[in-house]
Amino acid sequence: MKTILINLESDPQLEAQLLDELKAQKGEIELRRFPDDESYLRVLTDCKDHNVVIFCNLYQPDNKILRLLLLADTVRQMGAVKIGLITPYLAYMRQDKQFHEGECVSSRPFARLISASLDFMVTVDPHLHRYNTLDEIYSIPSRVVHAAPLIADWIRKNIKTPLLIGPDSESEQWVSSVAELAGAPFQVLNKIRRGDYDVEVTLPDVERWRQHTPVLVDDIISSGRTMLETITHLQNAGMPRATCIAVHGIFAADAYQQLQTVADVITSRCIPHPSSQIEIAPAIADAVRELLQG
């Protein structure tokens, strides 16, 4: 049975890597918009009796989710055996609690939409803050590719004497895991967030690490304020130029340009960006094969 990989408006470079890793057939689709801005979608590849994996990166999901659901329904009607989703960035995970009356806890209805249309899902380090696993809100089998080993491997190969730094107490377990895999020491910051762009950071004693390269590790860089504040403290402490590493590089507004002036910035290939240097395709392919075989 063949595996067909269909790229729905996502990174062509990662698509090519996934096709190679999965030994999959490239699925062809026709996609355009009618004059009233509704979507026209046609699947040109025969999917009957084959597994279909849709590569749709759900970063900025509101522009993609309806087309994803239309595509999944179409290939199911065509007779696909299993329909899976590869989404390196899983959207709508950050709103996981109702803080005010009437707020939508968007992670839950979004999970129901995905679960109703697909048979399995693979993603990379989703934002699991108040959920222990994706199984709490997704009813389909899922696999989370952990970026910690991939980041640790990059650090070992590229930074001689690193000191890993986590942005807050919540990151300690994750950063300590990367540090252990990289064979490097780590420190965790104390952080007070007053708003999206108002963050106060205090550092532990870094005197003994003065000759180490500080490596700031986080799951997401969005506004970049935490890292910028941290780098200021590191500079004042006389430490070498920092390296900032994130799994998901969102870089709101001019965050990337600001960080670039004071640090080297590295991200995984989860969200296509000039900073993307950490490869994820082999690990994603392993997870997909496991789900297809299961």
Rank of each mutant, 00 (worst) to 15 (best):
F251Y: 15
L216E: 08
D135M: 10
P35D: 10
M93I: 06
P272C: 06
E38A: 13
E103K: 10
V262T: 11
A148G: 03
R269D: 14
V81C: 07
A111I: 04
P282S: 13
K160M: 11
L19K: 05
V288L: 04
I29L: 11
H127L: 09
D264R: 14
I86K: 01
K48T: 08
G102F: 12
S177L: 13
K160F: 13
E103Y: 14
L66Y: 11
D153M: 05
R269Q: 15
Q77V: 08
R225L: 09
V75D: 01
H129K: 13
C270G: 02
L68G: 02
Q277I: 06
V215M: 08
W154A: 04
A182F: 03
L228K: 05
L216K: 11
E38C: 09
R194Q: 12
V262L: 08
M227N: 08
C270Y: 00
F251Q: 03
D168I: 03
L291Y: 10
I155V: 13
V247W: 00
D219C: 07
K64S: 11
Q173I: 13
H50N: 14
L14T: 12
N158W: 05
P12H: 13
M93Y: 01
D119R: 08
R94L: 04
L216N: 05
E207C: 02
V124W: 00
I140S: 03
H50K: 14
F120P: 00
L19H: 06
P141T: 08
E290D: 13
P141A: 06
P12D: 15
G195W: 03
R194L: 14
D153S: 15
E279K: 13
F110W: 09
Y256E: 09
L71E: 05
V199Y: 00
D198G: 10
I271N: 01
I231M: 03
E200Y: 13
L291C: 11
A80R: 02
Q258H: 10
A147S: 15
V144S: 09
T213E: 07
V52F: 00
I65G: 03
K64M: 14
A253R: 15
P109S: 11
L71Y: 05
S10P: 05
Q258M: 11
K64E: 13
Q187A: 14
L291Q: 09
P149T: 10
D11S: 12
S169T: 13
I192C: 07
I65R: 02
L291N: 06
L118M: 08
R42T: 06
R32I: 03
E207T: 14
M93S: 04
I140V: 12
Y138L: 15
G27W: 01
F120W: 10
P204G: 11
Q277S: 10
D37H: 12
R108C: 06
E136M: 10
V247K: 00
D205N: 15
I192Y: 10
I6M: 06
G238E: 07
G294N: 14
